[in-house]
Simulated scan of single mutants.
Amino acid sequence: MRVDLNADLGETVDGMPTADDDAMFAVISSANVACGGHAGDAASMRASVERAIRFGVAVGAHPSYDDRENFGRVARSPEPGELRASVTAQLSALVAAGADLRYVKPHGALYHAVTADPRQAEAVASAVADQSSWLGRALPLLGLTGAIAEAAASADLPFVQEAFLDRGYTARGTLVPRGQPGDLVHDPDAVADRALRLVRDGEVDTVDGARVCVDAASLCLHGDTPTAVAMARAVRAALDGAGIEVRAPW
């Protein structure tokens, strides 16, 4: 058995990091690097690229709405052309910082929008397809199933489904919106147990006590939560201890 372990990193705001990136890069296999939309700048992107090389971690782009004020977590409805141009600029910025770009995962409100809104999903997939053409290889999209998976297929891009270790799930298999009861999981032991169940059984408990099936090839932790490092280390120890190989699929 093997699985990818990814984290949202490089999320520097006004020159200040929001996570312990060194500690997180040491235990993950893929890093979703902020590339200027909600956080991150040229210096933080270069630093993330350097860490990725040092720790042998795959680099993915983590584009967002152009919304640094709200950390990209407020829903928006940009015109498709505007969104496509914005995502293209963010991907290009990360490549310009030296990244060997392997995949793309939208951030925050954009991440949720592209699961439900075909127009936004198509705009993001088109931007990724443009970058893929420039790089000479198809960049996979990482996310939840929905409109983005369909848009990826239409654009001849691979799609990889992920599951969240530190977010609450509803009975519909969606994430509990931030700010609602059960939205976040902070306990390292709980997320380690969840990781093992997801890999072995393909299921996760919901906030109301039910279970939903999740067929995920990648597991995500958010780097900016207070217990992120402890959770990441607990997950990695649990996976290693169970003989589950942690490796990027890109």
Score class of each variant (00 low, 15 high):
residue 10 G to V: 06
residue 217 A to N: 04
residue 152 A to I: 08
residue 34 A to Y: 04
residue 64 S to D: 07
residue 221 L to P: 01
residue 219 L to V: 00
residue 152 A to F: 08
residue 194 R to V: 08
residue 31 A to L: 07
residue 15 G to L: 11
residue 225 T to E: 09
residue 111 Y to D: 13
residue 88 T to A: 15
residue 60 G to H: 01
residue 154 S to I: 10
residue 97 A to P: 09
residue 135 L to Y: 13
residue 198 L to M: 14
residue 50 E to G: 08
residue 249 P to N: 14
residue 151 A to N: 00
residue 69 E to Y: 01
residue 22 D to V: 11
residue 1 M to P: 11
residue 245 E to D: 12
residue 2 R to E: 14
residue 18 T to H: 09
residue 192 A to L: 10
residue 110 L to F: 00
residue 7 A to S: 15
residue 106 P to F: 03
residue 165 L to P: 04
residue 114 V to H: 12
residue 145 T to Q: 13
residue 116 A to R: 15
residue 194 R to P: 09
residue 40 G to R: 08
residue 230 A to P: 02
residue 147 A to V: 13
residue 224 D to S: 15
residue 205 D to C: 10
residue 204 V to H: 13
residue 160 V to M: 00
residue 4 D to L: 02
residue 88 T to E: 15
residue 117 D to I: 14
residue 78 P to R: 14
residue 227 T to H: 02
residue 180 Q to M: 15
residue 52 A to R: 06
residue 53 I to P: 01
residue 151 A to Y: 01
residue 229 V to E: 09
residue 143 G to K: 08
residue 27 V to W: 04
residue 222 H to Y: 07
residue 119 R to A: 15
residue 213 C to Y: 03
residue 128 V to Y: 00
residue 122 E to I: 07
residue 20 D to L: 13
residue 23 A to E: 14
residue 241 G to Y: 14
residue 109 A to W: 02
residue 236 R to F: 05
residue 179 G to H: 11
residue 202 G to W: 03
residue 148 I to R: 08
residue 190 A to V: 10
residue 39 A to Y: 02
residue 174 T to Y: 02
residue 209 G to W: 07
residue 188 P to G: 01
residue 14 D to I: 05
residue 159 F to S: 12
residue 112 H to V: 09
residue 250 W to P: 00
residue 249 P to H: 15
residue 190 A to F: 02
residue 191 V to T: 05
residue 232 A to V: 06
residue 69 E to R: 10
residue 101 L to W: 00
residue 105 K to S: 03
residue 248 A to V: 02
residue 81 G to V: 01
residue 165 L to Y: 10
residue 194 R to Y: 12
residue 50 E to R: 13
residue 214 V to N: 06
residue 223 G to C: 06
residue 93 A to W: 02
residue 21 D to E: 13
residue 183 D to S: 15
residue 144 L to R: 05
residue 192 A to Q: 11
residue 207 V to S: 06
residue 50 E to D: 14
residue 185 V to T: 05
residue 74 V to L: 12
residue 215 D to H: 11
residue 171 A to K: 01
residue 66 D to V: 13
residue 234 A to N: 08
residue 158 P to W: 09
residue 176 V to S: 03
residue 40 G to N: 13
residue 44 S to Q: 06
residue 192 A to P: 02
residue 46 R to C: 00
residue 125 A to Q: 10
residue 182 G to A: 10
residue 179 G to Y: 13
residue 127 A to D: 04
residue 158 P to N: 08
residue 71 F to R: 15
residue 230 A to R: 11
residue 125 A to L: 10
residue 62 H to E: 10
residue 68 R to S: 11
residue 141 L to I: 14
residue 165 L to M: 12
residue 47 A to R: 12
residue 70 N to A: 14
residue 147 A to G: 12
residue 26 A to I: 00
residue 129 A to E: 14
residue 175 L to Y: 03
